[in-house]
């Protein structure tokens, strides 16, 4: 069950985020215009909550992730973390924020430095943030983390290329966990994995959330994964949020035409049982028993309509 978000302060709040890339003239490289990647994106992530960001290529979902973690400077809007506006933070100030906000990348092959052992990959964050784990304990704690994410701790001296794709993604998760973050941004973190391995990693993410109270900003093009993992979902299209709501709202009662088209396109494993995702999932007994919880969702949708329309 997606856990209902506790009602405290949002951990992450993004308001009116805008990111644009300059378009330059071909010869003189003068800025002649801008291509807006993301426009007016507003959302919140509460502690311990999983928020999904879905969209197709070019929808700007990765741009949102990268501006939240500070890899891209936003052109407008504000990003708040833990009650502080971090949009205009200096690199030094950002350093402390980054400890609490980590990222798991899409490509388990490109996101791990090929010249570091697993132990060093996990310990890299401690080299930057000296006070997290004392140097003498690096190996021990790294091995603990490896065990926690389901890797054999005896392999801590191996290099990333000696592991399979799923195991590499576990290394990526262990590295993100090393700094004891409150929020982990998963940018297509399971998209490159085979389905059986993907399921293992999704389970791991859920276990870690329960155990450590992590919040996830989960970015994916795979709607079935988002539906499975997230409590709330934002649908991005052309750099704008076209629909936002609880996972039930979005998947069972999509309002926007784009969301409907997206859902209709999701391949169904057994098409002979019924066409769309929503019908196949709502026939699930568990889904039906959630009938009692639908009412508050509808209410929250109406509230949202009040705010945004």
């Amino acid at each position: 069950m997606p856990k209902a978000a506790p009602t405290h302060q949002p951990l992450l709040s993004v308001s009116n985020l805008k990111v644009a890339y300059p378009i330059r003239s071909s010869v003189l490289r003068r800025i002649v215009g801008e291509k807006v990647a993301v426009r007016d994106v507003t959302f919140e992530v509460k502690p311990g909550e999983t928020v999904g960001l879905v969209g197709e290529s070019g929808s700007g979902k990765s741009t949102v992730a990268r501006s939240v973690i500070g890899l891209i400077k936003p052109d407008a809007g504000a990003i708040g973390f833990n009650g502080h506006d971090i949009t205009r933070y200096s690199p030094r100030q950002l350093k402390s924020v980054r400890r609490e906000m980590q990222m798991v990348f899409q490509d388990p092959y490109a996101s791990l430095n090929p010249r570091l052992t697993v132990r060093d990959l996990i310990a890299e964050g401690w080299r930057v943030h000296r006070d997290v784990v004392p140097r003498g304990n690096w190996t021990a704690v790294a091995q603990e983390l490896m065990e926690r994410v389901g890797l054999n701790p005896d392999y801590s001296d191996r290099y990333a290329h000696q592991f399979s794709g799923g195991q590499r993604q576990r290394i990526g998760i262990a590295r993100a966990l090393a700094l004891k973050p409150k929020l982990i941004i998963c940018d297509e973190a399971v998209s490159a994995l085979d389905v059986s391995v993907q399921a293992q990693v999704l389970n791991l993410l859920q276990d870690l959330q329960e155990e450590l109270g992590l919040a996830y900003l989960f970015i994916s093009h795979d709607l079935s994964v988002v539906e499975h993992l997230c409590a709330r979902v934002l649908v991005l299209h052309g750099g704008e949020v076209v629909e936002e709501g609880s996972v039930h709202d979005i998947f069972d009662r999509p309002q926007h035409d784009y969301t409907k088209a997206l859902l209709a396109a999701v391949p169904v494993v057994r098409p002979w049982l019924g066409r769309s995702v929503s019908s196949s999932t709502s026939t699930h007994p568990e889904r039906l028993t959630q009938g009692g919880t639908i009412a508050p969702n509808i209410q929250s949708r109406e509230e949202r309509n009040d705010i945004y329309s």
Binding site: A199, D222, H228, L229, A231, V266, V269, S280, R287
Partner: peptide, 11 residues
């Protein structure tokens, strides 16, 4: 292993 085959939020 396919997510949509399992209950939402379940393992």
């Amino acid at each position: 292993s396919i997510p949509s085959a399992a209950e939402i939020g379940g393992r």
